[in-house]
Amino acid sequence: MKTTSDASQTAHEPWNKGKLIGQKPPLKLQEIWTVRTQLRIAGNTRELALFNLAIDSKLRGCDLVALRVRDIAHGNHVVARASVVQHKTREPVRFELTDQTREAVQAWIKEAALSNGDYLFPSRQSGSPHLSARQYARIVKRWIGLMGADPQEYGSHSLRRTKATLIYRQTKNLRAVQLLLGHRKIESTVRYLGVEVDDALDIAEHIEC
Results as ranks from 00 to 15, higher is better:
Val197Thr: 12
Tyr154Val: 02
Lys141Pro: 09
Ile32Tyr: 09
Thr101Asn: 00
Asp99Trp: 01
Ile41His: 09
Glu103Pro: 01
Arg138Phe: 07
Ser115Arg: 00
Arg90Leu: 12
Leu120Cys: 05
Ala104Lys: 01
Ala73Asp: 11
Gly61Thr: 08
Ala107Ser: 14
Gly194Gln: 11
Val105Ala: 02
Val195Gly: 07
Gly18Asn: 08
Arg161Glu: 14
Gln106Ala: 06
Phe95Cys: 04
Met1Arg: 05
Lys17Cys: 02
Gly194Glu: 14
Thr37Arg: 09
Asp199Gln: 15
Tyr168Asp: 06
Lys24Thr: 07
Arg184Ser: 10
Gly117Met: 01
His87Arg: 15
Lys28Phe: 09
Gly22Leu: 00
Ala133Ile: 00
Val79His: 03
Val195Met: 12
Glu187Arg: 13
Gln86Leu: 01
Asp6His: 11
Val85Lys: 12
Val65Pro: 03
Leu146Asp: 06
Ala82Thr: 12
Val105Asn: 01
Gly194Ala: 11
Asp6Ile: 15
Ala200Phe: 05
Leu59Asn: 14
Arg46Ser: 03
Gly43Glu: 15
Thr3Gly: 10
Glu196Met: 09
Trp108Leu: 01
Glu208Tyr: 14
Arg142Asp: 14
Leu29Ser: 06
Thr4Asn: 11
Trp15Phe: 10
His12Arg: 14
Ser5Val: 11
Arg60Ser: 05
Val105Ile: 11
Gln23Arg: 15
Asp202Leu: 09
Gln23Phe: 04
Ile167Asp: 02
Leu179Asp: 02
Gly22Ile: 02
Ala112Trp: 05
Cys62His: 10
Asp199Ser: 06
His74Pro: 04
Ala133His: 12
Arg142Trp: 06
Phe95Pro: 03
Ile139Tyr: 06
Arg142Pro: 02
Ala104Asn: 05
Leu114Lys: 02
Ser128Asn: 07
Thr189Tyr: 07
Asn44Ile: 02
Leu29Gln: 09
Leu179Asn: 05
Asp6Gly: 10
Glu208Pro: 05
Thr4Trp: 12
Ala176Val: 13
Lys2Gly: 05
Gln106Phe: 03
Met1Cys: 06
His206Thr: 11
Asp199Asn: 05
Leu181Asp: 14
Asp202Met: 08
Asp56Glu: 12
His206Pro: 04
Asp99Ala: 09
Asn44Glu: 14
Leu39Met: 03
Arg160Val: 04
Glu31Phe: 04
Ser57Asn: 09
Lys185Val: 04
Leu146Phe: 12
Met1Ile: 15
Val195Phe: 05
Trp108Tyr: 02
Arg175Ile: 08
Thr98Asn: 06
Ala133Ser: 10
Leu131His: 08
Gln178His: 04
Ala11Ile: 13
Gly117Thr: 00
Lys24Asn: 02
His74Leu: 09
Met147Lys: 01
Ala204Met: 11
Leu48Glu: 13
Ala80Arg: 14
Leu97Gln: 03
Val190Ser: 12
Asn76Glu: 13
Thr98Glu: 07
Ala112Gly: 09
Ile167Arg: 00
Val105Met: 02
Cys62Val: 00
Tyr154Ile: 02
His12Glu: 14
His157Met: 06
Asp56Asn: 15
His157Cys: 05
Lys24Phe: 05
Gln23Cys: 03
Leu59Met: 15
Val190Tyr: 15
Gln86Lys: 10
Leu201Pro: 08
